[in-house]
Computed example of a mutant assay.
Amino acid sequence: MEVSPVEQLFAVFDGTAAILQEELQCTYLEALAETGENIFQNTILQEELSEITVKRLEKSYNLVAEKNFLSEEYRKAFQLAILKGMKEHVQPNHQMTPDTVGMLVGYLVNKFVEASSFRLLDPAVGTGNLLTTVINYQDNRQVEAIGIDIDDLLVKLAYVNANLQSHPVQLFNQDSLEPLFVDPVDAVVCDLPVGFYPNDDRAAAFDIRAESGHTYAHHLFIEQSTRYLKPGGYLFLIIPNGLFESEQAANLHAFVKENLNIQSLIQLPFNLVKNEADAKSILILQKKGENINPPKEALLVNLPDLSNGAAVDRILQKINAWFAENK
C-alpha cells in the first residue's frame, strides 16, 4: 500500500523526535521542536549527540531532503506529531483547532478580506496550526502574519511549523493581553482561550473588565484584538456557544455594539466536540469606521456534519448568495 506524503513526514518527525527525546532527556514536544529545526536548517544542531545517533538522524532527514513536500503536507504531519506529544504533555487551553475548522476559517478569511496583501494576527497562536492553515488557503495572496503566545514551548513549535512551511511569521512570546508591539492589522484569527484572566490589575485597563473578581480572558481577547485592528478590519473568532450568555456578558454586548458590526455567526457541528457544553461557533466581526456599513442582515448558519458533502455544499451556496447580496 502506498504511503502518503503526510504519513512519510510524520514517520520522520515522530521517529527522530523519539531519538532526540531519549538522548536529550527532554519531553517529546521539546524534541519535536529540535528535530523540526534540524530539518529546516538542513543540519543537526545538537552538539552533544553520539556519532551513532547523528547517523540515525541523518538517514531519516535525507528522506525529507530528497522530496519536495507541500506546505499543507508539512503542516498536517507536524500537527499529528504535536497531537501525539500533547497526550503526554497535557496543557489546559491548548487543544488544537480541528483541521476542518481551520480550513473553514481560511475559506472565510479568503471571502471577507479582499486585498491582495494583508496583515494577519493570531493573539493566541499556540503551535501555529490555525494561523498557518489560514495562510495556506489564501490563493497566492501575500500575508504578513503575526502570532503571540505566553507559552515559550508552543511559540517554538509555531516557529518551526512556520519555517517548515516557508511562511514569514513574526512571533512574540508574551502575555497577549499586555500592550503589544504590533502595528494595526487587517484581520485577526483566534481560537479564543476560555477561562478567567488572573491579572486583575491588567484587566482593569479594559472596558470589558468584570465589576468584581477575575474577568473572562476570552472577553478580554476580543477587546485586545479590536485595539490592534484597522477600521474596517475583521475578527474571525472561534467562540464558546455561550459567549453572550455568561454573567459577564453585559459589558461584552456593550463593547461589541459600540465598536463592531456583527457579520456572521456560524455554529459548528456538535460532533466536533465530546460534550455538547463545549460546542463552538465562528463569530465574524468588523471594526466600525468611516464609510463602514453593517450588512443588511448577518449571515447566520448552522453547519451540518462536515462529512455530509451534499449538506455542506448547500451551506456554501447559502454563504456565496449572502456575499453576492451583502458585499
Rank of each mutant, 00 (worst) to 15 (best):
S176D: 06
G242M: 03
N129C: 03
A77W: 00
K84G: 12
A310M: 12
E144N: 11
N110L: 15
N326R: 02
R56F: 15
P304E: 01
E178P: 00
L45F: 11
P98Q: 12
I238K: 05
Q41G: 02
E48Q: 14
A187F: 15
A162Y: 04
A298H: 09
Q170Y: 02
Q79H: 11
G15F: 05
F13Q: 00
I52A: 11
L49Y: 14
E2H: 06
D175K: 03
I39E: 00
L177F: 09
D200E: 06
R202A: 12
D149E: 02
A115M: 12
G126A: 09
A158I: 02
L272V: 06
T53M: 13
K288W: 14
L157M: 04
K288E: 12
E30N: 14
S50C: 10
L153K: 05
Y234A: 11
L272I: 09
R202S: 09
K287P: 09
A310P: 04
F78K: 00
F196T: 07
Q95Y: 14
V273K: 03
E211Q: 12
D175G: 10
E2R: 04
S71Q: 14
N271K: 09
L45W: 14
H214L: 09
I282S: 10
P193C: 10
E144L: 11
S307K: 12
L171M: 12
P98F: 12
L120F: 13
F244R: 10
D191C: 03
H214I: 01
K296T: 04
L229F: 07
D139W: 07
I266H: 06
G126E: 08
K327W: 07
F118A: 08
I222P: 08
L303R: 03
E211Y: 05
E325G: 00
P123G: 06
L20Q: 10
Q142E: 14
A162D: 02
V109Q: 10
N241R: 14
D152N: 11
K87C: 05
L130Q: 03
V273P: 02
Q91R: 13
L229I: 09
P5T: 05
I315N: 03
L45S: 11
F13T: 00
T127M: 02
N129M: 05
F221C: 01
